[in-house]
Nucleic acid binder design. Structure first.
Length: 206
DNA sequence: CTCCAGGAGTGTA
DNA sequence: TACACTCATGGA
């Protein structure tokens, strides 16, 4: 099965997932979610985002104005709250300075490099921000994508992030909406197939 | 109780 | 480049 065929199969099976531009929908909230979800279950990210919204920390300016301890208390449910607090502050500062540029530029490699220079923004987080917050055609690789690539698409394991991303992008139409849905569908598929297998979790090594 | 979740930074070899 | 280690909460 080709990568594109697999996408069509998943889309027919689960339908559109419309990730992220769905909640409060603000660009900054998407960026916050991308950072807060690092090695953390999404259910807990939702709690942290709700706390931020309730405390009126729902914009970069408010994040930068808030006391560290108060910010940490708000995002505590998402874990790693001390370093994620610093990550949010760094991202807030960056977004305030460069949001317009990101809206207008289509030099994706350059934008990606700028994001990677922000503390707490690695490859997956950078690509999630480009795809979900700025609607750029950048395919996001995560742990689920790696499992699917090896177990279902029979791609070689242990590929570096950028290499695996290149394989997916070379195999798919360069469409933001498709990248958006495919990534979400892969996550949905992994959770669903593992639930049906009775694992109770997403059994990483099977 | 153990295992893990939509990772990233740092240090070592 | 390739690992090991740390960060931390909450759900199953």
């Amino acid at each position: 099965m080709t990568i594109y065929t697999f996408y069509q199969y998943l889309f027919a099976l689960y339908g559109p997932q419309h990730w992220w531009p769905c909640q409060s929908g603000s660009r900054w909230e998407i960026v916050c979610g991308a950072i807060l979800t690092q090695n953390c279950a999404w259910i807990n990210v939702g709690k942290a985002l709700a706390n931020l919204a309730q405390k009126n920390f729902a914009c970069p300016q408010a994040i930068l104005a808030a006391p560290d301890l108060e910010l940490e208390e708000a995002i505590r449910p998402a874990g790693f709250f001390r370093q994620k607090r610093a990550y949010l502050q760094a991202s807030a500062e960056f977004l305030l300075a460069h949001e317009t540029e990101f809206l207008n530029s289509e030099d994706l490699p350059a934008l990606r490099q700028r994001l990677l220079a922000v503390r707490g923004v690695g490859r997956e987080t950078a690509d999630s921000i480009l795809l979900y917050a700025f609607q750029k055609p950048v395919f996001v690789i995560d742990a689920y994508t790696r499992r699917v690539a090896e177990r279902h698409l029979r791609l070689p394991g242990g590929l570096a992030y950028d290499a695996l991303q290149g394989v997916f992008q070379a195999s798919l139409p360069r469409e933001t909406q498709l990248y958006n849905e495919f990534h979400a569908l892969i996550v949905c598929f992994c959770k669903e197939s593992c639930r049906k297998a009775g694992c109770g979790h997403d059994c990483p090594e099977r």
